[in-house]
Amino acid sequence: MKPKIAFFDFASCEGCQLQVVNLEAEMLDVVGAVEIVQFREAMTEKSDDYAIAFVEGSITREKDIPRLQGIRKQASILVALGACATIGGVNGLKNFQPLDEVRRYVYGEKAPWYDTFPARPIDAVVPVDHYIHGCPIHKAEFIRVVQSLLLGKKPEIPSYPVCVECKRAGNVCVFELGITCLGPVTRAGCGAWCPTYRDNCAGCRGLVPNPNLNAEKEVLGKYGLTVDQAVNQFRLFLGYSEVAK
């Protein structure tokens, strides 16, 4: 029997589910290997009988919690899909401003209608089995993780930094172009996507295990960033993590 999988989302742009839809050529193979039973962005038919749940988005309000707990209860395997779910992502930027003021800024005097609390990744609420990092996720990595899960294996994700992939790609280091980059402490797996296009790594895949943060801050300082500016750079995607505090 084909494993039943389902997709869910919380506060997010749904771009990671779009990456799944954008698989194009490989999508037919995926559809052949699994049974997709719930995917609101793409289908009307719906069943709550699923074994693997892919969850996109951050948790940002009370009523998200029971919904996520329900998904956790049903799924034997829960996979966090994309930066909002794995590390909090850009949603975490609001955590650095007083939330009452944030709500007032956007919704004015009607602010009390709009429930919100500090954005958090899903593993701050329920246990997560596997992570597909990135903003957005990389299509090839999604396929690799699905293949591993179908074979009953633990999906392997890199524990070395983006710099390794960037060097392998033969890129000129963006620091040399005058751009400050979080590649030295960010988990690889994207093929150094942004530096390859001469943009900085902003840390969307989260930190490597045991990152050398002091060295990174030193490097950022060497290239002219104050400590506040360096911390601010971490906040873009890593606002929920300690490094941004």
Binding site: L93, R103, A202
Partner: peptide, 25 residues
Amino acid sequence: APRFFEAFVRGRNYLEIAHITSRIC
């Protein structure tokens, strides 16, 4: 779920703004 982009781009550098607001959708 509301996400409050207009509030949280405040304080960010002009080179980051398009990357942040891209994440609206």
